[in-house]
Design a protein around this nucleic acid. Structure first.
Lengths: 266, 266
DNA sequence: ATAACGTAACACTAGAAGACGGTAAGAGAC
DNA sequence: GTCTCTTACCGTCTTCTAGTGTTACGTTAT
């Protein structure tokens, strides 16, 4: 196990991937020692410690003498590296579908989701464009693009999400009103969207208030999970986009509750 | 001038440095053809074009078929690459002096100046710290540091400054109140601080209102120049720090006008 | 129409940054 | 006090990507 050869994992650097795997391992086992990890991953103690330091910086694990223990699952699931590992092809499909909704000259808001990040790569060709986001990787990418007016949403930096949040961010969002919003969440029930973290919910709610057309990007894995905080009813979104792998019997309930669901083709 | 051999230029990557030099060349000559630049800098046409594209993205030159022309000097002087090339040792000294004013636990605001950027490198050891800034290079550096609460000041991205500005940024600043502010300007008269760009002035003024102790970092070159917009009287700053190379007869007038001037030792 | 100029695509290179392990010194448990 | 775990430092290695030129293809002016 710890299969490190899985075809489609070409997005992350080797250490980042290993760290994500270590995080998963720790979450699964609750708490483990450094030496366990040395054996499990075949690297030196040094490297294990470095990885753990990084994971601790991101808030995913807690180190103590003799080993590490997992933090509440929620933060693991929030971890950027973990999210980048997950369902990349689905996200690419969602992004392509989303792109078709954008016309040159529009203003677009993106939240700190990896789905939204995939969308950034598709912006060439629909410029000019105004883009507002609180997601640092997206900001970095967008600075390089001419003909894009980038509006960075500031706030308190979160290493776990690699994005800005908190009240300052919510306030920055309030001051705007964009044509479009693309966002994602961690879980979707037939009637509602959910997220684990209150802070993030705060910002996403503000975003929902600050856009004309709201689009929710959902890969099928999200439909079979739940999370602590209820973000909003799906009817608050103008469109819910799911990927093609989503079973029909999971889509239908959404529609029954009044949501407008579109399917993104791979 | 256009002295391209100046010993201490070790901060910028080769292309960035060449671009700065090309910018200077264009500013000096008003308008030149791509081929002129090929000869002047001994690189291929392709590279020249790429450099010019980048400079155009930053707003420093305007391309047209057959060559490029310079934009108003002000934007050239605002250009980040240009500023990074200038007076690095002085800025390092100013930063070291500034560092001594910071105590662990304080909240610090930094503007989009290269002097402030130098300060970021000295933060290790005085953590924890809360740092607020609108300068992207500073933000990037700070994300890597644990024990620093980073508060990004969002706003409209300016490629020329590599920072965020405009009204959204000013509003974000208004919402704060930090213990310290370190900032810089482009010109200093005996009584006032000046800057070329109105937009930037807007943000800096907001910053001045949002900090308890305000520190102005000035390398001696600034004292013999002027700029369009008057930012504030020097007495609005609690301390004005100048570098050691500043002639006394330039310092005295500042003091005569009531400013508190400190000299940073190399 | 043709020549000059600009752009896009490709491939090569060099340099830097990252990643890793080993050893030795430090800190903490028992 | 002793043992174990952790950190710090250093040197090496590799990996990666930014930078560049070449060639071939558009584009625009005259």
């Amino acid at each position: 196990m710890t299969s490190d050869v899985d075809g489609d994992t070409t997005e992350l650097s080797r250490p980042a991937r290993r760290q994500a795997e270590i995080a998963a391992y720790v979450v699964e086992h609750g708490s483990v020692s450094a030496n366990d990890l040395v054996e499990a991953f075949g690297v030196s103690v040094m490297t294990v410690h470095r990885d753990l330091d990084e994971l601790e910086r991101q808030g995913v694990v807690r180190k103590y003498r003799g080993g590490v223990s997992a933090q509440p699952t929620s933060v693991f699931e929030s971890n950027v590296a973990y999210r980048l590992n997950t369902a990349q092809t689905e996200k690419a499909a969602l992004a392509r579908h989303a792109r078709a909704m954008i016309e040159p000259g529009m203003s677009v808001m993106l939240d700190d989701s990896t789905s939204a990040l995939a969308l950034v790569d598709l912006f060439e060709g629909i410029m000019p464009l105004t883009v507002a986001t609180n997601f640092l990787p997206a900001i970095t990418k967008l600075t390089a693009l001419r003909d894009i007016t980038l509006l960075a949403l500031g706030g308190i930096y979160s290493a776990t999400h690699d994005s800005f949040g908190g009240m300052p961010c919510a306030e920055a969002v309030e001051a705007l009103h964009t044509d479009l919003l693309f966002c994602s969440v961690s879980a979707v029930s037939p009637a509602h969207a959910y997220h684990q973290e209150e802070e993030i919910v705060l910002v996403k709610r503000a975003m929902l208030r600050s856009a004309k057309t709201k689009v929710l990007l959902v890969d099928h894995a999200k439909l079979q999970r739940t999370a602590l905080h209820r973000l909003a009813p799906l009817t608050d979104f103008d469109v819910v986009v799911v990927d093609e792998k989503t079973p029909d019997d999971l889509i239908q309930p959404l529609r029954d509750h009044g949501a407008t669901v579109e399917v993104a083709k791979l």
